[in-house]
Design a protein around this nucleic acid. Structure first.
Lengths: 194, 194, 194, 194
DNA sequence: CATGAATGAGAGTTCATTCAT
DNA sequence: GATGAATGAACTCTCATTCAT
């Protein structure tokens, strides 16, 4: 695939992200995409066979962008508690951001829940839990935190965040609620937000 | 609407539940329902105008069934901690049950997240949180539990459960994980499962 | 058909007239009629097999009502010119009346233009032309009017009225226009409206 | 829209005209058109959204064709009386032609009598009346005709023609009758057909 | 590579008509 | 006679997908 093709593909993905954000996953038709990115009907099929394939690439790009933020070694001189707080603040932004693909992602995952396609989401989850567990274990070792089962605590944080994300897309959630949940989580680990 | 009509309506709702469970919300067409309950194309329209209306009634029935379990005064001689545990066990069943409408429910909620139709879900959530808060407050007052902010703890439980429900429908969750999360929750409230 | 049946039939016809007036001929469904007269779906079929049959009876009733007005010997002491004017005034009312079945009648006639069903309309037209011709011939004989070919004059009046009726149902017509056309017609017969 | 598209559109319009002529306006379905012009179901929708849109374009074409005949400067060396006669002869052909859209046009107009869509018909009528009025005024000025109110005479001609057109589609009309009506009209203007 | 007209399957919906009660 | 639930054919319209240019 040439350079020109790659640029075109990126154009499509950007326009598609907008469409998926606005209309979710299932409601989106190839026609919608075609209209949104001003490409020809047949032309789109040269790059993507269907909306599923398209969405998967959109999601991939999204994950990569998010991951790069999270993996950044911004934690040089920070203690585990500070790092955890930074992570939770990042998640807060994600929960509350307006132009999220979260709803579309859920739709996609529900649709493909019996197939293998949800694996990348699962891997992402497992990875996150492990990182959190390590963080908490470190926090306990360095006596910043109090926790008997870092593994369960990590999972609990992950599920709580997942629950807030789902709620944000369905029944709604306020910034204040997210804040107080963050404070509560920190509290269960024996830390207090200054 | 006569007695016979009501019976028919119930038949349709039962068949429809099966279809929604199998295929989610959006993928379901009136034709699917028609074929599932051996009624004529036009006949179905005598009872329901579209899949949305149908699904809302299916969901209503579902809520009523669940609610009746929760509202049951099974708590006569139980202390707050025992009641909470019973509630969490009930939720565990719901999280793990195979024939759940959860995925379809999420699809429905995402689809209608900007309209008023999601309100019943929100009310259900708020109600649950209030009940949990009361339970924890009682538990603290009777010195069964330790908790500085019952309100946040209640919300935390609700979001954790929501996160596990969402996870169950997407990346999957094991009974063991649910059990250990229940234990962890009880632990944060200063209780230990025997 | 018993007395009760006849009453029921009349009820249906009255409700049906309203429906045909409001929605024209073709747009009307048996369902519309059923809903308008509060009879059962199957019940309606005991009296009328379809909307065509129904409309024909509604039209028949209408003709009979109109005819009775026109045939009335209101012309005792009137001269032919006065009678003609009276007739034209009657037609003016018909042209301008709001609750006319004219549009539905046209629809019906166009629909059935190749069948025998339009004959009653044709008979009605021929009868009217003959009466007008006689009137004009009398007027000429008694030297109230001037006309070389009463037959053509009569037809001309009939077609002009028909044209105004059609116009009233499509592009609209004002009372003033009808008035001036009546005056013009009288003028062509050498008469002047005082 | 390319050249090929335009040709296709014209093909559709021609096939559609045939269908509308045969079956009127309301009875025509998109399926009828599809079958008549050997196009695919979806293909037709690329050009026309519904039968109304289609019929309006068919009618437009028709009007344009008719108009071009009337606007032709065939009147170089003709006096007003001769022009009027030519016009009436043209109308005679229209009244009597077998493959006319008149019936469908009436159906369409009745159907849309309360909307703005009937306006083009009204404009057409008004335009015709004005042209006739001018013709008669000229005829009177040049002493070919005798008429006290050219405006009313013009309207009378228009309504008479309209009446004959309607009659042709419903109760029928013979060539002889149209001829004698033309003669009568000329007579009322003080002219005699040689 | 790129285009966009064309296809046809299939969804939603309505209605005349029937028939067991 | 009277009811109204049930039927199934038919209609409108949309969309993923193909294919000649």
């Amino acid at each position: 695939m040439g350079d020109k093709s790659l640029r075109k593909k990126n154009q499509i993905l950007e326009a598609a992200r907008e469409v998926f954000f606005k209309r979710g996953y299932r409601a989106v038709t190839m026609k919608d995409i075609v209209e949104a990115c001003g490409i020809s009907r047949g032309g789109l099929y040269l790059y993507f066979a269907n909306t599923k394939e398209l969405f998967e690439e959109v999601l991939d790009r999204e994950y990569r962008t998010l991951q790069s933020v999270l993996d950044a070694p911004a934690s040089k001189n920070a203690n585990p508690g500070e790092i955890l707080l930074m992570y939770l603040d990042e998640q807060k932004k994600e929960i509350l951001r307006k132009d999220t693909l979260a709803a579309a992602r859920y739709e996609y995952m529900f649709e493909n829940r019996f197939s293998e396609d949800g694996m990348s989401a699962k891997n992402h989850f497992v990875k996150t839990v492990k990182a959190l567990e390590q963080l908490i274990a470190d926090g306990v070792a360095q006596e910043w935190m109090v926790c008997e089962s870092p593994k369960e605590a990590a999972k609990n944080i992950a599920y709580t965040l997942e629950g807030m994300k789902a709620a944000a897309q369905t029944i709604g959630i306020s910034a204040k609620t997210v804040d107080s949940q963050i404070a509560y989580i920190m509290g269960t680990l024996g830390m207090v937000i200054k």
